[in-house]
Write a protein that binds this DNA or RNA. Structure first.
Lengths: 217, 217
DNA sequence: CCTACCGATCGGTAGG
DNA sequence: CCTACCGATCGGTAGG
């Protein structure tokens, strides 16, 4: 009778399956939650995604996400914030490669190309969630994300002013920015990687539409 | 003891407030539900809107929407379907005014103007719901709405082919359609009526961006 | 179209 | 990060 007491229910197979050690580092579980949340929020929407869905996708039990995030809303905010910070970095890095004295055309092309990376590049669920779930944010959260968005769009404003001043874009610079970003943002609805155009192709097409090369006379 | 038995609880004040008679006609309550649903689905999203919200907005009790619609999903589908049918009618009516032999520029302008009406005109919640809540549809529902969307977009395809063939638009006709519609669709995110540009102004700006007039030499 | 109601689910928490 | 749990809400229904 040393082995076990009959009344004690048999233990389950010794805990849950362990993750490989390199996945257990400090903030990695938080990142796993964020990626799972971004994917699910994009696929099903914020309200239709349960915290249980997210926990399961990250290999946790239902209560565990609340160890990393105060509540579901904080998860949404974190997805958008991380998405915008990555976007700002992609944009800044791209702009470093084009000298400030370059033609505004070249600057626009760089912005368009970077934006396709932001929207459609690897790990591209974060920004689509932001584009889709704005209404699910509280007023305070919106203000926080809007600050980052303004920073991102300011880079466009300068370039479009220059293009408008040069007559390379005939529409009003402000409206042109809204419409160009809209045209690009919409691509998250229809673009399928691996099938058809590359991001470079898309960038070429967008440039031809928005600021076509003047034909040789 | 003819008047009442003491154990019977007092009746409430004789039913709920009645609507004016012209609002009680046959299908009007259904339409009220649809409009309430469209407004709420747009504002809060499908999943975050409860059937109780919709019932209350239409002046009904919580169970009553299910007298008009089989379930919540059917309400969403009906909103989108009605939105697309109205859109097709707006587009067709607009195109009747432009002769088929007109320049493709004129046809494009008509399509753009009609699309702004569809997106931003009176009672404009139905199409934004469609743009935002696609993922909330079942596969069968998607197929039904997609049929109507194809019909709507076919009018664009012809015109853009003609513009591309004439060299008035340099981008590929298919991509141009996606990007133009994206640019316009995005306006539901930022356009505020009564403040700033009219729909005619927007149309002018869009045309200048997508198919600018050639400058006088 | 209302009343009264049900079963299921969900966000979140206490305590370890 | 798990276990065990709670209160609230929600879509939907029976029966009138």
């Amino acid at each position: 009778m040393t082995e076990a007491a009959a009344a004690v229910p048999a233990r389950r197979p010794r805990g849950r399956p362990r993750k490989p050690p390199e996945a257990q580092d400090e903030g990695n579980r938080r990142q796993e939650l964020l990626h799972a949340a971004a994917r699910l929020f994009r696929q099903k929407g914020f309200a239709a995604t349960t915290t249980r869905d997210i926990a399961a996708a990250a290999g946790m039990r239902s209560g565990s996400p609340f160890y990393h995030f105060e509540n579901k809303a904080a998860l949404l905010f974190a997805v958008m914030e991380q998405g915008m910070r990555a976007a700002l970095q992609i944009q800044a890095t791209a702009l470093q490669a084009v000298p400030p004295e370059a033609a505004p055309d070249a600057r626009l092309r760089t912005l368009v190309r970077a934006h396709f990376d932001v929207l459609l590049g690897a790990g591209s669920d974060f920004i689509p969630v932001m584009l889709y779930e704005w209404r699910s944010l509280s007023a305070a959260q919106r203000a926080g994300i809007a600050r980052l968005q303004r920073q991102y769009e300011d880079a466009w404003a300068d370039t479009l002013q220059a293009l408008a001043a040069a007559g390379r874009v005939q529409a009003d610079a402000h409206i042109a920015r809204l419409m160009m970003l809209g045209a690009l943002n919409w691509s998250v609805q229809w673009y399928k990687p691996k099938k058809g155009a590359s991001l470079d192709d898309l960038c070429d097409q967008a440039m031809q539409l928005f600021a076509p090369q003047r034909r040789p006379r």
